[in-house]
Amino acid sequence: MNDFLPTETVGSQAASATDHLFYALLGISVAVVLLVSGLILVFSIRYRRGSKADRSELPPILQREVEIGWTLATLFLFLSIFGWAVSENFSFGTVPTNGLEIHVVAKQWMWKLQHPGGQREINALHVPVNKPVRLIMNSEDVIHSFYVPSFRLKQDVVPGLTTQLVFTPIKVGTFRLLCAEYCGTDHSAMTGKIVVMTPEDYSRWLDTSPASEDLVAQGRDIFTRLGCAGCHDARAAVRAPDLKGVFGQPVPLADGTVVQADETYLRDSILQPRKQIVAGFDPVMPSFAGRLSDAELETVIAYLKSLADTDGDTR
């Protein structure tokens, strides 16, 4: 938060890769601007009206060669930059399996975050250094954007869609969290901080933070309270898909397509059950839209995912 020169605020693995690409492009750009403005300046002086400079015409064949030459050079240069940018993009976008999962709910105008152990935070996120973090994000109202400049990372948080952001903090310190998508009156006040701590400090922080039940336990309670098991249970009278081990697996749908059961799929299935009907089942499930807050929904999804984790056969 205190240091703001870009070289000092590389806060994540992605950040240094982005910076390298940025400075390379900056170098190329400076060279091109110097070339173009230099040529304009030199020509302006040398060929000012009435100067004695040689103005005999070049053969047309040379003109054509020059044109083809700089077109190809430009194309080659741009393709190289594109190739580099793509390789960076696909290397740091991969999702780690051993990461810390944090659930994020954005609303006008605050960030609500919850740790796997149930610790809740508002406008602040405490994470240990050098451990991959995976944010699972939803919005309660409009589009927001989770932006940590020091990590060079940003991801829109969209109502009705679960988005993710993966990063590995590499430096202990406090970094700004900002909302980058205009979201109404207090958009510029929708800020917070990311506190990156040593693993020891982090476990101390976890111990001293008031934790309710962990997410999975909360989700199990809600699952029971809403009577979901009445249908989604092998012994139930109404036939509904078995949810054990569903997370992360391909699900065949009634319309013949297959979807991956990710967070967005689970969320949609709870709020808009008729959107994607599982093959072989009747569309009888009622929508739970309006009956669950986003935070509650997160816990149910966490519970459903835990069902997948415990089932060794399907993972």
């Binding site: 982005t18 741009f78 930059i81 594109f82 400049p149 940003k154």
Partner: peptide, 16 residues
Amino acid sequence: GLFLASVPIDVHVTDT
């Protein structure tokens, strides 16, 4: 514009 066409840089600087 080339900076913004590069996905990793755009992720950082879009909406800034």
